[in-house]
Amino acid sequence: MRRFTLIAVPYLWLLALFLVPFIIVLKISLSDVALARPPYAPHFDWATGIWAFLSELDFENFVWLSEDDLYWKAYLSSLKIAFVSTVLTLLVGYPMAYAMARAPEEWRATLMMLVILPFWTSFLIRVYAWMGILSNEGFLNQFLLWTGIISEPLTILTPNTAVYIGIVYTYLPFMILPIYAALERLDDSLIEAAEDLGCSRLTAFWLVTIPLSKTGIVAGCFLVFIPVLGEFVIPSLLGGSDTLMIGKVLWEEFFSNRDWPVASAVAVVLLLLLIIPIVLFQRNQQKQQEAEQ
């Protein structure tokens, strides 16, 4: 009986507040816009029965998504931004994780704390910090003008550069931590063995360190790629009006256009897009767990 309660309480909670909402999203994505409250039709009605209800559902919104190239472009541009920023975060994060793992042991806890600290600080504030730096009359332009490198303010905020900087900045800890964990476990004698067998420092790094930190790299990349794909705050604060990301489109569809069925359809497609990386990520995590045993 006690075991039953233990399982039932969290189970029912998640069913009611996680699974059921999804079914609702799916259903609304198949409905039509209506001038009503809530603004969609049909509504389920016991009187007419389930078949009458189901027959009114259709894929109209998905057809609409595939026809309007705004959505296409938004999905593609989200994928591109997520991909490029994942690569950039890896390029910044790997050397840091590597240096942390190589640092004297008594420093490591402090370095770790320095990486985690921004992670606990508000996401919004960290994005906001870059607004002051990257805007046209922002700190970076002031600084560059002052040093004489440029003579006219650069516009950094409008193109996607600012979005990339913001993403790399906010997601850096997600990249560093799994890679650091993998590198820290790495036995120094493996590198020494490689050198002993004739490798230079660089070949030893390439043939031993990189392959053995692969699970960390893959985990870090997915931890950045997956949430960035649906990112809303960074493109809306740092991006320009032409920065297309699907999270932003969904938000606007919902709050500005009040087109709930289309917003739901956008969400369903985003979810489908995410399934592949999520499954790959899970597989990587499983492999890592097996390797640890």
């Binding site: 036995d187 004698s189 493996l190 020494e192 063995a193 490689a194 050198e195 002993d196 067998l197 004739g198 490798c199 230079s200 031993v208 392959p211 053995l212 692969k214 390797a291």
Partner: peptide, 20 residues
């Protein structure tokens, strides 16, 4: 002479076999 250029080889206590 750096380790990778020495005509000596070492068998490590942990064996240091490359797991991959």
């Amino acid at each position: 002479v750096p380790p990778n250029k020495r005509a000596t080889n070492m068998m490590f206590q942990s064996y240091a076999l490359f797991p991959h």
